[in-house]
Design a protein around this nucleic acid. Sequence first.
DNA 1: TGTACTAGCCTGTATATACAACTTAGCGAG
DNA 2: CTCGCTAAGTTGTATATACAGGCTAGTACA
Lengths: 254, 254
Amino acid sequence: MNQAKPRYQQLKDLIIGRISTGELQPEDRVPSENELVESMSVSRMTANRALRELNDEGYVERVAGRGTFVSDFRSQSHLLEVHNIADEILRRGHSHSCEVVRQSRQRARGEVAKALHVEQGTEVFHLLLVHFENGVPIQLEDRHVVARFAPDCLQQNFESVTPSAYLTSIAPLQEAEQVVRASLPNAAVRKHLHIEETEASLVVIRRTWSHGRPVTFARLHHPGSRYELTGHYTPPGTPRSTPEEVVQLEELRQ
Amino acid sequence: MNQAKPRYQQLKDLIIGRISTGELQPEDRVPSENELVESMSVSRMTANRALRELNDEGYVERVAGRGTFVSDFRSQSHLLEVHNIADEILRRGHSHSCEVVRQSRQRARGEVAKALHVEQGTEVFHLLLVHFENGVPIQLEDRHVVARFAPDCLQQNFESVTPSAYLTSIAPLQEAEQVVRASLPNAAVRKHLHIEETEASLVVIRRTWSHGRPVTFARLHHPGSRYELTGHYTPPGTPRSTPEEVVQLEELRQ
DNA sequence: TGTACTAGCCTGTATATACAACTTAGCGAG
DNA sequence: CTCGCTAAGTTGTATATACAGGCTAGTACA
């Protein structure tokens, strides 16, 4: 059942791994194509494809004549792009960890049943996870999953596999809706996110479909002082903004 | 000064051109790699790279053994879509009104100067407007505009023409960046939005460009209890959601 | 000492070739 | 007629090779 991944993908995974463990820090030099040819026994074109795709995906930056270097920030992502908190953190070159607060079987009630298009009392799984960026809590994930789409959900270890990765493995994402809200979090949320009573939280409510049916419904709480959504809009046919401009925006955010 | 584009990019441009003129419709078959080898006199690897990147970018879908086909269009709106509060309100069938709190000439300082890429002390206009939906305050718009792009800004009556309409009339929007944050508003913001001390606000910080230069920088404050951003995501090739499902989401928001 | 140049590394692109896996149409045996 | 096989076309991947062009450090020369 386990397909052997293509060689260029193995190279990408290897390098992403080194970035995510912190072995490679932003600005660090990534092995050159010729070094990968030597050490990994691949052709230069294969090494080229791996590094080029990592460049396109924003993990690294390549400079002809100098080399390939780990990126500092993620290139623009659409606000609505369905993103995975773990990938987002890793792409920033930071470490991601996850703590499972609850992983249980429940009967769908009220809002959850309505959102998932199931009858009251239908079996669902409930996940409550805290995601950490460099040890600091950055997201409280409160997720319900329709049980029959994910029968082995309770057996998963979500401290090593992220729910996003698990869910896309059992059901391909086909559609998603998001609502973004600002609110004052209750005591339980404040406790998990380590925030003050006077701090707002940014809440993303997301529902995703597969095969025409709602599969999962999640409320993602973030500390207002440590998290924001960013986006970039360019009408068709406009030249990309230069990295310099993006840096300007970074400063502006402080 | 004009570099010759690489061959694979020329192929991509050619195919994108055929799609944008309508010569190639969604679901239509795109020339295969071997056909491009013949007709364009390139190697198969070059044709492969062009089609593979068009696939990664969502223009086409490739199926091993069958061929390459134009994707169903990606006209879904992004959360990031630059929207106009007045249009949004009118679209909901509600009434929009606007109160001008301040409309003055200023010298750019600190964050504003940096965001607009101008020297400290450059002349800018400052607008402070409150937008109402059915008489209820829904947005506090705190906007700075580079003066030389909008010389008659102070003469405008923003209670009848919205700033968005005015600004697009003087300078075509070419690029925009947004940051979305949750925060606890200060007393002034609370007063204008008629909200309690214990209510969070959703803040959209938006910067827009025209002709390669920042033109305006706005902070849009919204009451957390009465405003939210919504979005919808559909990967290429997925059937659209039915109106019924959207209605379901509306209910869910209550 | 200072400047100019070059050797060596790096990425970027392009080609020719090869094999694997998937899909479909068509053909042939039963 | 139907089932199954095969051949041809397609994408997916991998390799070896080649040349162009950017960058840098170190060397040779003035």
